[in-house]
Design a protein around this nucleic acid. Structure first.
Length: 274
DNA sequence: GCGATCCTGGCC
DNA sequence: GGCCAGGATCGC
């Protein structure tokens, strides 16, 4: 579900929890814990303090003095703050963090496409998921030159597949990939090797723009997404092509078509995107 | 590089 | 009942 703007909006909605004392952590039977023991997850988050909440790509890191739990929200994952002590847990709650003051933070994921894993290190290079991530789109260290280098390692990919590749650069998902390709005027079916440097660099700039707007609008609430306090984002009202098959682009410059690439829908405007 | 696969739920 | 969904890993 959530892409960089949604995950960043969740992070921002929860920064007030930094420094709050943690009492205990509980996992559900079906909790999607990967590459680490359930005990490690619980120990990391019990009888300590939640030092920080950070984001890397679409991952959130819940850090304590013992390391960090790395949360991926998959398609339907949510982090939800409960201000009322002893609140009822929602269906599909897989991790319950209880703070000493009786408040709680729950990780909820119906489809369980998300993951909970662990890192002991600040940079996350001991975590198999974070290891594979490229630099964030919003990372100033992601220069045009470095981005081009990454692109050229995947000449056979379509631009849509390139956009979704988290190792090239991290943070785009289906919504913002479609939107950034539209903004850059690029046909999602075009391959990397048939795309000039200047057009790839334009895509990078547009991706940054679109993601920035997504953050400013609090993310796109389509079906499931809510931030950590249960608030919706309004980015949906600004999407030019996503989920607009048969309609005009939001700005009225052309008609939107839907195709399927790598088993995922792509919405684009053939008149604008070449 | 691509398709199948992991899951649940909502909508037609 | 079938199709679709803000994702990513895994095998060919």
């Amino acid at each position: 579900m959530p892409e960089l703007p949604e995950v960043e909006s969740i992070r921002r909605s929860l920064v007030f929890l930094q420094g709050r004392p943690l009492r205990s952590a509980r996992l559900s039977k079906l909790a999607p814990v990967e590459k680490v023991s359930r005990n490690k997850v619980i120990q990391t988050l019990s009888d300590t303090t939640l030092h920080s909440i950070q984001r890397r790509g679409k991952y959130l890191l819940l850090a304590t003095s013992r390391g960090a739990i790395v949360v991926h929200l998959g398609m339907t994952g949510r982090l939800s703050y409960l201000a009322e002590p002893a609140s009822q847990a929602a269906a599909h709650t897989h991790l319950e963090l209880s703070f000493s003051d009786g408040t709680a933070l729950h990780y909820v994921d119906a489809r369980r496409f998300g993951t909970l894993s662990f890192t002991a290190r600040e940079n996350g290079d001991d975590n198999p998921f974070l290891q594979k991530l490229g630099l964030d789109y919003d990372d100033p260290k992601l220069s045009e030159e470095f981005y081009l280098e990454q692109c050229r390692r995947h000449p056979g990919l379509s631009l849509k597949a390139l956009a979704l590749h988290q190792g090239v650069a991290a943070g785009l998902g289906n919504i913002y990939a479609c939107e950034a390709l539209y903004a850059a005027g690029l046909d999602p079916r075009r391959t990397v090797k048939r795309t000039k440097d200047e057009r790839l660099v334009l895509f990078l700039a547009k991706a940054r723009e679109v993601l920035g707007l997504g953050i400013a609008k609090g993310g796109s609430s389509l079906r499931d997404y809510l931030d950590g306090l249960g608030n919706r984002g309004v980015m949906r009202e600004f999407l030019q092509v996503y989920d607009r098959e048969g309609m005009s682009t939001l700005d009225g410059r052309g008609r939107v078509r839907r195709i399927v690439q790598n088993a995922r829908s792509t919405w684009f405007c053939p008149q604008i995107q070449k």
